[in-house]
Amino acid sequence: MSESWAIVLAVGAGTMAIKAAGPVLLGSRPLPAQVQRVVALLAPALLAALVATAALASGQQLVIDARLLGLAAAAVALALRAPVLLVGAIAAAAAAVARLAGLG
């Protein structure tokens, strides 16, 4: 049990420090233009990486399963301008149906 609390403390303190470092230490100083151009691309780069790993990674393995089908369904829903909650629900439903059918 004390092991659990050690993890909670270490991860909690570490994460708080990581999150706070930029906002507290940098303050409102504007970043140099070059840095700003890089920072502007962090969102698309990281979000695309999260899409890819959440859809394909299972631990340290790449697997093609029902999640990819759900993602494809979500892409169609997004192209049709469906609201975000519906997009998530469609992806979940597509994956659940695929699993019922014995795929992935």
Binding site: L47, R67, L71, A73, A75, V87, I90, A91, A92
Partner: peptide, 18 residues
């Protein structure tokens, strides 16, 4: 996983990415 919840996450990240 049986509810397809794990498939909702890439979809939601995709919705944030677009």
């Amino acid at each position: 996983a049986a509810l397809g919840l794990d498939a909702a996450f890439p979809a939601l990240f995709l919705a944030l990415l677009v």
